[in-house]
């Protein structure tokens, strides 16, 4: 297998099952160096398992590939030296202080001046004044920042972030993403899994995974275009009643409320138009053809994947 120098992750046919239950099925993906790659999918879709296979924490049942040019099956030790992995659950030592946690990580990676490196990271994270605070007593947002700091301390070439912003407030989330963009600008490759659509739109490329299968990947525009979904936005009175009338009608693949409006989508434009025709003239409703949102696309992908899965 030839690996282009500008590819950070290149894996083929990864499959992993636990107790006979397939969690990841025949997954292939390529991630370019220096890009932010969003990894989306519902809970239990295999995102965490895939990330763990990439950094050598799990051995794939089938499939192979490279991470930073190193074989994920046989060169896990070399991958570990160059990859920062931020776990879904806070996994630094709660009973060590901020400074002690960072110094521990710096020593494990053999950084020449661990004390100085930890102090520099505390500066960068803006944690001055909190360095002696126990990590367990930090708020959710600060914990995420500290965890990211611990991952980036050994100067990795690739960051694997598993739902880094789950349960973090919007302001901390925005700051976190600014930091990730700053790191990518320095040449770091970032693979980040998330549930949030606004975060997906901050990625250079995204992939959507459901029931262990990678369903679609590309830029956000590619993914929306590729979906071939036609969407109407309806606003007006008694949208809840309308939702019940529309749901399940042939030609309507999806109808969901979005704030004060309703998104009605279908994959077959003609069938959708036919289905909504009787409602278009209803008084008090305003119909407008619109772009499907990323969320529409994903919910559609997921429902189709479930149909295939069952």
């Amino acid at each position: 297998m030839t690996v282009a120098a500008d590819i950070a992750i290149d894996v083929h046919g990864l499959t992993k099952s636990f107790d006979g239950r397939v969690v990841v099925r025949d997954l292939s993906m390529q991630v370019k160096r220096g890009s932010i790659y969003g990894f989306l999918g519902p809970n239990g879709s295999g995102k965490t398992t895939t990330i763990r296979m990439l950094c050598g924490l799990l051995t794939p049942d089938k499939g192979d590939g490279t991470c930073l040019g190193y074989d994920i099956r046989t060169e896990a030790d070399k991958i570990k030296l160059r990859v920062g992995y931020m776990t879904q659950r806070f996994s630094l030592y709660q009973d060590l202080s901020v400074r002690e946690n960072l110094e521990f990580v710096a020593r494990l990676y053999g950084i020449p001046d661990p004390v100085g490196a930890a102090r520099a990271m505390i500066q960068r994270l803006g944690l001055q004044g909190r360095e002696e605070q126990l990590a367990g007593s930090l708020s959710g947002g600060w914990k995420q920042r500290l965890a990211l700091g611990a991952c980036t301390l050994p100067n990795p070439q690739l960051l694997l972030l598993d739902e880094p912003t789950a349960g973090v407030d919007p302001k901390a989330r925005r700051e976190f993403w600014n930091e990730i963009h700053a790191l990518a600008a320095e040449g770091l490759t970032v693979l980040v899994s998330t549930h949030y659509m606004d975060e997906a739109e901050r990625c250079h490329e995204i992939a959507y995974i459901a029931y262990g299968e990678l369903l679609v990947h590309g830029t956000v525009e590619d993914v929306i275009e590729h979906s071939a979904l036609v969407t109407y936005t309806v606003s007006g009175e008694d949208l809840n009643g309308l939702l019940h009338e529309l749901a399940g009608k042939p030609g309507i693949d999806m109808a969901a409320p979005f704030g004060t409006s309703l998104h009605v989508s279908g994959r077959d434009a003609a069938a959708l138009d036919a289905a909504i025709a009787p409602f278009r003239s209803r008084k008090g409703l305003v119909w407008a053809k619109s772009e499907p949102s990323l969320e529409d696309v994903f919910i559609d992908l997921m429902s189709r994947a479930r149909d295939n899965f069952q």
Binding site: G56, K80, V83, T87, S91, L92, A150
Partner: peptide
């Protein structure tokens, strides 16, 4: 139990 093993295993030790 505390989840720190996962990140310990992902480090070079």
């Amino acid at each position: 139990e505390r989840g720190t093993m996962e990140s310990l295993l992902s480090m070079p030790i």
